[in-house]
């Protein structure tokens, strides 16, 4: 599924574009979550093997033929946990954004000049 790998890379580039070109902090966080989705798509698509099925054994895919019929379970397991972490990290960033707005009254990064000299 090279197509989905390409799609993932395009999403990563678009997300980084958003993070670099926008000045609103919420928009930067949205760009981050788009990058997240892109990376997950790339990782899962690398684990895919042509004409194979999900790594879950049942009547259709027995123990004996599993080796030749299922896709790689390791990227799935990795991405599964990465998605949950992504939510927690996004929530943490949003909490910082809310706090920042409470203290500064603005979400524009050009209004935050403490580190500028």
């Amino acid at each position: 599924m090279t197509l989905i790998t390409i799609l993932g890379f395009i999403l990563i580039v678009i997300g980084i574009w958003g993070m670099l070109s926008q000045s609103n902090i919420i928009k930067i966080i949205i760009g981050f979550s788009i990058v997240d989705t892109g990376i997950h798509l790339v990782m899962v698509s690398i684990g895919y093997l042509k004409d194979r099925t999900a790594p879950i054994l049942d009547e259709a895919v027995g123990k004996a033929e599993a080796l030749a019929r299922v896709v790689d379970p390791v990227p799935s397991a990795l991405v599964l946990t990465a998605i949950v972490i992504g939510l927690a990290v996004t929530a943490l960033m949003l909490a910082y954004a809310v706090k920042l707005h409470e203290m500064k009254g603005s979400l524009d990064i050009h209004d935050l000049k403490e580190l500028k000299w």
Partner: peptide, 26 residues
């Protein structure tokens, strides 16, 4: 499959008894 995944898929069901291989990996 990569060598690691081959081990998980080949031995996983008998070793751990889980039908969902993703669950046994996690």
């Amino acid at each position: 499959l990569s060598p690691v995944a081959q081990k998980y898929v080949k031995d996983g069901p008998d070793e751990l008894g889980s039908a969902n291989l993703v669950s046994s990996v996690i």
